[in-house]
C-alpha cells in the first residue's frame, strides 16, 4: 500500500508546518488499526480532492482567459452534464463504497470476544478508567489508559454528567459518551508508545483541560503494569511521607479520593492509589512531580478553572511538601 509513502509525506508536511511537531495527539501518525485505515482513506481523498480542485480552477481559468474554441466547448449544457453530473456521480459512488468498506473493516475488532474490556467514564473534567477483569474484578485508575499492543481492546464509554467524547487520534476516531448509554469502541494498538487524547465534545468549563494519555505496551509489560495497578497502595516510607499520609487522612482527602489500602475510599475524584506512577496530573494538564502536586493542591482553580476540587490553601509549606511527597510515593 502507499500508506508508508504517504505517511512520510505527512511527516514532512507536519515538520514543515509544525516546527517541532509533538504529534502525540496527531491523526497523521497513527498507531492503531482504525486510525491507520482512516489515514489511508484521508490521503486517498485528499489527493483525489486536490486533483478535482485543480481541475475546477483550471476550468475557471480557461473559461475566463481561454481562446474562443476552448471556451465554446465549456459553454454548453453538455459540459455541465459531464463535469457537473457524470463525473461527480462516478467519483462519489466509488468514494461512498470505499467508505462503507472501511466501516465494515471495523467489524473485525468488534467481533473479538473475550478481549480486554475497559470502562471509561467521562467526568467533568477528567476520565475514570476501570479495567474490567473477566472474573468481575474492577481495577480503577484515572486519566491514563494502558493497552497491550496487538490485542483488540473494548472500551465501554459512559458519562457521569454531560456529553463527552473520547478521542485518541493516534488510535482511532472519536466516540461520544452520552448519558444513559454505553458506547463501545474497539481499539487495537499496533505499536508500543505513548499517545495523547482529549475530550472532543465541548463539555463546559474546563473542557480544554480534559485530556488523557494512552500507553501502549507489549503484552508482557502490560501484564506487569496491571499486576502493580491491582495491588494496594505502597505504605509510606520515611517520616515526611508518613506525615503526608496523616495529613491526607486528617484533611479529609479520602472523602473524594480512593487510596486502596490506606482507608481512603471516596468515589468523587480520581483514584489516587497509584497516582505517583502516572505520567501526568489533572487529566494530562500538569507533569507528575511533587512540585506539581503542591501547585495543584493549593492553586487548582487557577490551573484548571471550575474543576470540582476545592482549593486547599490550609496547609503551610512544610505540610504541603509532606503531602506532595506522600502522593508522589504512591507508585
Amino acid at each position: 500500500m502507499t500508506a508508508p509513502v504517504l505517511r512520510s509525506l505527512a511527516g514532512t508536511l507536519c515538520l514543515l508546518a509544525l516546527a517541532g511537531c509533538a504529534g502525540e495527539q496527531s491523526a497523521f501518525f497513527p498507531r492503531g488499526a482504525e486510525a491507520e485505515r482512516i489515514e489511508t482513506l484521508f490521503w486517498v481523498m485528499t489527493i483525489a480532492g486536490s486533483v478535482i480542485f485543480i481541475g475546477v480552477v483550471v476550468a475557471t481559468g480557461v473559461a475566463m482567459l481561454g481562446g474562443q474554441r476552448v471556451r465554446r466547448v465549456l459553454a454548453g449544457e453538455r459540459f455541465i452534464a459531464g463535469a457537473g453530473i457524470a463525473f461527480p456521480v462516478a467519483a462519489l459512488s466509488i468514494l461512498l463504497v470505499a467508505g462503507f468498506l472501511v466501516m465494515r473493516a471495523g467489524a473485525a475488532g468488534e467481533d473479538a470476544e473475550g478481549g480486554l474490556r475497559i470502562a471509561v467514564s467521562g467526568e467533568r473534567w477528567w476520565w475514570r478508567v476501570t479495567y474490567l477483569g473477566e472474573d468481575g474484578t474492577q481495577i480503577e485508575s484515572a486519566n491514563e489508559l494502558h493497552l497491550p499492543v496487538g490485542e483488540p481492546v473494548t472500551l465501554e464509554l459512559t458519562t457521569a454528567d454531560v456529553i463527552h467524547s473520547f478521542w485518541a487520534p493516534q488510535l482511532a476516531g472519536k466516540l461520544d459518551m452520552i448519558p444513559g448509554r454505553i458506547n463501545r469502541l474497539t481499539l487495537t494498538a499496533t505499536e508500543p508508545g505513548v499517545s495523547r487524547g482529549q475530550c472532543a465534545e465541548y463539555c463546559g468549563g474546563a473542557h480544554a483541560f480534559m485530556s488523557f494519555q494512552v500507553v501502549a505496551q507489549p503484552p508482557e509489560d502490560f501484564a506487569d503494569w496491571m499486576a502493580n495497578e491491582a495491588a494496594d497502595a505502597p505504605a509510606p516510607q520515611g517520616e515526611s511521607e508518613a506525615r503526608g499520609a496523616e495529613l491526607f487522612r486528617q484533611a479529609g482527602c479520602g472523602a473524594c479520593h480512593t487510596v486502596r489500602g490506606a482507608g481512603a475510599n471516596g468515589r468523587i475524584g480520581p483514584d489516587l492509589t497509584h497516582v505517583g506512577s502516572r505520567r501526568s496530573l489533572a487529566a494530562a494538564t500538569l507533569p507528575n512531580d511533587a512540585e506539581a502536586f503542591a501547585r495543584w493542591i493549593t492553586d487548582n482553580q487557577h490551573i484548571k478553572p471550575e474543576n470540582q476540587m476545592p482549593p486547599y490553601t490550609i496547609f503551610d509549606e512544610a505540610e504541603l511538601e509532606d503531602l506532595s511527597n506522600y502522593l508522589e510515593s504512591l507508585k
Partner: peptide
C-alpha cells in the same frame, strides 16, 4: 465542498468531527 465530501465519509469524520 470537497472537504464536505470528506467529512461525509463516516470513518474519516470520526477523526475530523469536532476538531
Amino acid at each position: 465542498g470537497l472537504t464536505g465530501v470528506m467529512v461525509a465519509i463516516v470513518p474519516f469524520d470520526l477523526q475530523a468531527h469536532d476538531s
